[in-house]
Design a protein around this nucleic acid. Structure first.
Lengths: 213, 213, 213, 213
DNA sequence: CATGAATGAGTCTTCATTCAT
DNA sequence: AATGAATGAAGACTCATTCAT
């Protein structure tokens, strides 16, 4: 059933299934991000992917599942990118910084991704937690460990790792989204450092003698 | 169900236009928030408002305009609430704190509001900037002035009021949204102080003698 | 209950019923002719008549009946006009000519009338014969008598009064309709004589000695 | 009902576009003629054509365009029929007779056609000249030439070819329409000769020495 | 397998009619 | 009696999904 991998170009568009899948998913991500779930017609995706509508339904039995697959795909790539960036970085602050910057860089490179998550939240709230947050929750414990290490190192004002995780996460998510939706279009790479500096050390000067407690 | 003796409703009741408008808008806000623009049927709104579908079209000639009116209405109330909260608060830090807490409190009281903004961004991106950001931009200069005063008072590490505004705004927006969408449902009132503390003074202890410049 | 006839203008639009009726009918004729039955909204008629929609429904319980009344009214006026024109004209040829010219003159003066008949035929075929033809049939026998007199006077080539009636009627109806619908807009008064001459004496010269039979 | 062994139809059948077009158009002509444009539901046409509603919209993107196409189709067939009938007939009087009889025969065979033209005039007056008259105007000059030949042959009382054309055209149109709408339902084939005789030679005997005055 | 023609359930919107004021 | 706000049945059109070729 699985076509020979070397068989990339047959006369009648017989491509390996994996390739077809990718082709379709890529088109789906693009169109869904731009138009949203409801406004996207399956035909548009088929056109962009250069396949017939029927072929799409062979791989993804409903429009819903195609959308979910698109979100899943993007989310997996985001996760992989961040994971790769933090891999082997032992110092918890540097670990945090590397992850934060990778996150921002991902959305800089794939501006449509954030829209996809927004669309998912908008249209699929009924059916379980959105994938974005499902993935976030999967990584949650790992990040809490990082924050805990940071706390344990004695460098933190705040001593609740969950609070720290949430504030950093919310700031990152909010910044990416606002930047995209508001139409500002700043470079996310550029603001990543500033944002991180602000959340780490605050916008205010430390109140005098804050640490005597 | 029981007819209000003060004649406030009941089918086929003749009401002043303003009252009908409110009734419809209120139902629209609720249903649109829950289901999103596309998934909402006008009939659902009519049912919830307790009016005929035709009555809705009398006031809002299309579903689109009804949605926009709903967003506008919520946005106006948010703006009014925040404005009221900061009115007369002269100290810039207290002004900022009052505004931030009022913002969070508003979404605590109207959890559906944030969804509406997300839905707007998701479905109406083609047509101009979403109302949320349009409103934000209207108030932008006023807030920059507040941050500038704070900077001028010499209490800030950061000296760019725009950066400060953006980071606080993005954190607030991101926190409200994530809290809602992720399904965490913490009390926004409760986390407001924590968030503000973190962004003001950072999650880290100040690095020793950071301010000798 | 019946208002004093001199009471044409009361403060709150209380007019004698007959006047209201006329007012409404007149508006109905105008709007129906221009837009057709289906495309006309009762509101448009109400607006033009300067009354509320409810008032129209007081006099004409459905839109259908209002339309029928409009057709009836026009048809009655047409009939009356033609009747008046032929009244007392004894010579059958002059009688015919007077009737024909009055018919054409009526549609010259009320160009919208023919449209009304067309609309009636278009929309109400299901329900019995259109009023125009019902009226025509009512006058049919009288006209046949006229043609018979003409025949009896020995001046006719054709000896079937029904054929004569039909050909003259069809020519008249066709000419008015084509002139209106095709957008030619010639003066019907002007062409009436020509048409009548042609149908009476033909467009061809008589074949030699045609009358010896 | 019984599936044609030659596979001409049955639900879900894949047909060449031209065939589908014809199938739909044929149903449209029938239903539109009977009910008029507004009273016809697209579903009725779909049912009669034995296709889904969506299929109709695939070929004719709006109900309006479907109607126009139906009119166009009938008008083309009428024109073709008349053209074929007069082809090669040199004598102008015989040419005229052939055309007139072909015209009447067409409506005898397609009684619904005249209704379609009436409906078009009734509902689409706003948008340009009705197709019937547009087509008529296209053939106008050719017919004027015929009448001019007839005049040149010295056989005519009337010397204006336009008047002759109009009177014959209006009589034909009026006769077909009245015959259909009034519900008389005579055989148009049968009356064609009579009508033509009457319009050619008049209903009256020639006045003696008609040219001496 | 791949395709896209065919399908029809689902929705917005209109407008004749009703009835509270 | 007159009004026009309110109603909801009706109908054009879309698009996800199916399936014959």
């Amino acid at each position: 059933m699985v076509p020979d991998p070397s068989d990339t170009s047959m006369k009648r568009g017989r491509k390996p299934a994996a390739e077809r899948c990718e082709q379709i998913l890529s088109a789906a991500i693009q169109v869904f991000s731009e138009q949203g779930f409801r406004c996207t017609e399956v035909q548009q995706i088929a056109d962009l992917a250069g396949v017939g509508k029927g072929t799409i339904y062979r791989f993804y039995p409903t429009k819903d599942e195609l959308f979910q697959a698109a979100v899943e795909d993007v989310m997996q790539r985001l996760t992989a990118r961040v994971d790769a960036a933090v891999h082997g970085v032992d110092d918890p602050l540097e670990h945090l910084r590397a992850g934060f910057k990778a996150y921002m860089a991902f959305f800089q490179a794939h501006p449509e991704a954030i829209e996809l998550f927004v669309h998912e939240s908008a249209e699929f709230r009924r059916v379980g937690q959105p994938r974005y947050f499902a993935y976030s929750d999967m990584r949650r414990q790992a990040w809490i460990n990082v924050y805990q290490q940071l706390i344990d190192s004695g460098r933190c004002r705040i001593d609740d790792p969950q609070q720290m995780l949430d504030v950093v996460g919310n700031l990152a998510y909010g910044s990416v989204l606002v930047n995209r939706i508001s139409g500002r279009n700043e470079s996310l790479d550029d603001i990543a450092d500033r944002l991180l500096d602000m959340i780490l050390f605050g916008v205010m000067k430390p109140v005098s003698l804050p640490t005597r407690d």
